[in-house]
Amino acid sequence: MAERITTEDVTKVANLARLALTPDELETFTGQLAEILEHADDIAALDLAGVEPMARPLPLVNVFRADEPGTPLDRDEVLACAPVSEDGQFRVPPVLGEAP
């Protein structure tokens, strides 16, 4: 069985997901996540040799759209929904560092 998830792990993941958790929430979610992961361990314990991996339950592949342009959204209408806009663009607070 894998090592039990710690509050440090959950703090890190919460931080990556930009979630601010209170100490109580941290305890609660660490417990809940541990149970979910233990359930995964139950499955990992089964002998699944010869069982095809399944990416998703739907027996569907190759669902496509034709490469044809549709109607764009109206820019002014969209920018009116943004907190701040400037020169036809969304204005956001300064960003530290480049995108990954």
Partner: peptide
């Protein structure tokens, strides 16, 4: 980038 006051985004 480190001294910018704000950024503008074009999608």
């Amino acid at each position: 980038i480190h001294d910018a006051q704000h950024s503008l985004v074009d999608y």
